[in-house]
């Protein structure tokens, strides 16, 4: 469990990055901090591993104040994944993944063995083990970053816009992989992003931040979509633009979900997870070729 208690960060010169922030993050929960630049989301995340120390208030992990912990020891116990630029460019893929275990004193052979298993876990070709980061694609670098974050088997994983530098198709793939990994590993994840769709996809709960780290709304994606607290949240999640205001139209006997602009968002599935057939008895008809085209997801602009 991670707790923020009335945390404030003020830099010399008077800039206030975070005014007064409190939030509890349960163990095994993935929380996405989402906001524009200046919302203090990265600053807040970095308070957890003491890359930033708060000016006031306290951050605790399992009821222990992080201010009382040795920052170097603390950081080695927390996985940290950032954009691709965070890999050590002078170390091979395998050496990057073994960074933290080796710092913690794990024997090199043992660390490498585990790193190879992790490469498999995150979907990296074993042949890439001896490459340098610059020799990998953006998506591969990001997978190495995730493997490195997991290498010491930490309870907590901090992810700072980890998929921000890759193209949309690869990002979608990586988000899917992270969801799969999280179902298996059940880490406590704090995920920072400016992309609300990514936040909704990764976060069990999402905290939408205003400038200065002020919480606009915290809740599950469903709660936020169902009941945005104010215009700021509604605008942030796209509810005001109609992209999230969906309604059902009947097309060829199926229920097609359409947004406010009339763009198809997908096909409505029944409670059993199968595609709805709009009342027709023959459920197989839903698997016809038309369904795939209709299921193309429309993203809010």
């Amino acid at each position: 469990m991670i707790g923020f208690e009335n945390v404030r960060k003020e830099y010399p010169g008077g800039t206030v990055a975070v005014e007064d922030f409190s939030l509890e993050i349960a163990s095994h929960e993935a929380v996405a901090l989402v906001g524009t630049s200046g919302s203090g989301k990265t600053t807040l995340m970095r308070m957890i591993n003491r890359m930033v120390d708060p000016t006031a208030g306290r951050v605790h992990i399992d009821d222990e104040d992080v201010a009382a912990m040795d920052p170097v020891v603390l950081r080695r116990s927390i996985g940290y994944v950032m954009q691709a630029s965070g890999l050590l460019p002078h170390r091979t893929v395998l050496d990057n993944i073994t960074t933290v275990p080796v710092l913690r004193g794990t024997a090199k052979g043992e660390a490498r063995e585990r790193a190879r298993t992790l490469m498999d876990t995150v979907g990296l070709d074993p042949d890439l083990a001896d490459r340098y980061p610059a020799q990998l694609s953006g998506g591969q670098q990001q997978r190495v970053g995730v493997a490195r974050g997991l290498a010491a088997d930490p309870n907590i994983l901090l992810m700072d816009e980890p998929f921000g530098a890759v193209d949309p198709i690869v990002r979608d793939e990586l988000q899917g992989e992270l969801q799969r990994l999280q179902r298996e590993l059940r880490k406590t994840i704090v995920f920072v992003t400016h992309d609300i769709d990514e936040a909704f996809r990764i976060g069990d709960r999402v905290a939408i931040l205003r400038p200065g780290g002020r919480i606009a709304q915290v809740g599950t994606p469903q709660e936020i979509l169902a009941d945005p607290t104010d215009d700021f949240v509604a605008s942030f999640v796209g509810a005001d633009r109609g992209a999230r205001t969906l309604h059902v139209e009947h097309v060829d006997g199926r229920d097609v979900v359409v947004d406010a602009d009339g763009r198809a968002a997908g096909v409505l599935a029944g409670a059993d997870g199968r595609l709805g057939d709009g009342g027709a008895a023959d459920g197989d008809a839903a698997a016809g070729p038309g369904a795939e085209a209709l299921a193309t997801e429309e993203r809010p602009r």
Partner: peptide, 24 residues
Amino acid sequence: DVLGSATAQGYAPAARFLAVELPL
């Protein structure tokens, strides 16, 4: 970014200088 990331992985200052900053 690389230096920040090295700190986040748990490099102590002297180790970070010798193992990351100097070689880079």
